[in-house]
């Protein structure tokens, strides 16, 4: 597979380490009332879709960027690659 790195262009997927669903960016608030349940769902439950899947890849043998890759789990077609940092900010993460 080839991941079209937003900064570096096409790079072989073997240079990357895979983590999983991009929802791992959405780490719950540790002080929320339902934190225990929220963390359980965050850590363990997955949509595991057939089709489009947003997922986290780390460019380990490259520039050390975490990327959010939108990839079809049936065809492996990649439709979008973003810097995870940008995605995280867009999803309201800060410090």
């Amino acid at each position: 597979m080839i991941i079209n790195h937003p900064l570096l262009g096409p790079r072989d997927a073997s240079e990357f380490a895979y983590l999983g669903d991009a929802s791992l960016i959405d780490r719950p608030d540790w002080q929320a009332e339902n934190a225990a349940e929220a963390f359980y769902e965050y850590a363990y439950l997955r949509d595991n879709p057939v089709g489009e899947h947003r997922e986290l890849w780390f460019h380990e043998a490259g520039d050390r960027s975490w990327l959010v890759v939108t990839r079809n789990t049936m065809t492996h077609e990649i439709s979008k690659v973003e810097l995870a940092r940008d995605v995280a900010r867009a999803r309201g993460r800060s410090k």
Binding site: L8, S14, E15, A61, G62, D63
Partner: peptide, 10 residues
């Protein structure tokens, strides 16, 4: 300048 893997060495 490019970073890459050579025989599993970054």
């Amino acid at each position: 300048a490019a970073r890459c893997s050579i025989h599993h060495v970054g």
